[in-house]
Design a protein around this nucleic acid. Structure first.
Lengths: 189, 189
DNA sequence: CTAAACTTTCAGAAAATACTGAAATTACGA
DNA sequence: TCGTAATTTCAGTATTTTCTGAAAGTTTAG
């Protein structure tokens, strides 16, 4: 696996961005390498291409598996494992977002939920409790919305995104035309 | 600023989550403290409440300012600066997302853009170039959509999120009724 | 202008995170 | 089942990130 300078630069860039995306440099570089490779690569291929240790590759592969971003391919009569990206770019992005939601949102939501449940009329200042409720409600809204979006067909989701805020206009109009539907929450400012 | 155990726990939680949200523990704790406080706090108040050094507070305040998450309040006849959260929870969340987009998406998008512009018919493998194009298109779509959403009124945006994937149904229906609008991209799978 | 009150900076220390490589373990073909 | 090829683990090391506290800088009342 000889890399051109340009591909190499792109892989290095993904390595540098990795920590901002929730994983470490090696994981980022390896994901890029596998996404850009048109054939599955062995762990040794990866270690050689990126000049990192075999042990590091093994740990990073585990991490990538746990994010469901790669899968293993086995060649009959060959003991080696070969690895490749687990789906299209769109699917990988969905997977990353889902995993990040799980790590970045869910723990806080559950902490807020239990806090707001248990403490009834505490010695906690009213303003603090109110702010916690706001954060809770925002995260809950986000969570439901996100789950819903994840279940939409990619093509529908893409079309919806392309429509952008235009969707608001369409819904307002629809609402005016059909005031008995559940969309009536729109336009109440 | 004496903290109750429960408030304290919540602040510690925000500190632990901070690194996943793009800042460090002190910044996370301080943001939580200021969000939950019903009055502006001085740098010394903060250092005392959180048991961290004055220097650390100063650096974290700079960071919070750069994210536009706090603002400074000055009391006439008092030399101290006092700090408070810069808006509602919703506004703070928007601000965090905007800043994260800037740090997590924009650099990669511009790198991909220049790569795809300059290299015409390179020695770069076709599959790699194709994948880069896919990532580029996805990030561009996301960026436009995100900008659009940011310009919507919070109440409209909340209503839209509450509607969830229901919006797809509404649009499909609207589309069937009004096939000449630009929403016709919906439903082509 | 001076001095006290407050804030910022930054070198070094501490803590957290990532990486290496050799040893242990596992998986496979014969 | 055995031997070997491959993978995983993890203790030790290296690197990166964060934090401290003292010194330098800034602001303001008098």
């Amino acid at each position: 696996m000889k890399l051109t300078t340009e591909l190499e630069n792109m892989i290095l860039h993904f390595g540098e961005m990795a920590s901002r995306w929730g994983f470490n440099r090696s994981v980022g570089q390896m994901l890029a390498l596998l996404v850009f490779s048109d054939e599955p690569l062995s762990a040794d291929d990866i270690a050689t291409s990126l000049s990192i240790s075999r042990g590091n590759v093994s740990m990073a592969l585990k991490e990538l598996h746990s994010w469901r971003l790669i899968r293993t391919h086995r060649e009959p009569g060959d003991r080696k494992d070969y690895f490749l990206a687990n789906g299209t770019i769109w699917e990988l992005a969905q997977q990353v977002l889902a995993e990040r939601k799980k790590r970045e949102v869910d723990p806080t939501l559950s902490m807020l939920r239990s806090q707001l449940m248990t403490s009834e009329q505490d010695d906690m200042p009213g303003h603090a409790r109110q702010q916690m409720q706001e954060i809770h409600d925002l995260l809950e809204l986000f969570n439901h919305w996100f789950d819903d979006m994840q279940h939409m067909k990619p093509e529908h989701l893409k079309a919806l995104m392309r429509l952008g805020s235009g969707v608001g206009k369409v819904l307002e109009m629809t609402d005016r035309l059909r005031p008995k539907t559940k969309m009536k929450a729109i336009g109440n400012d």
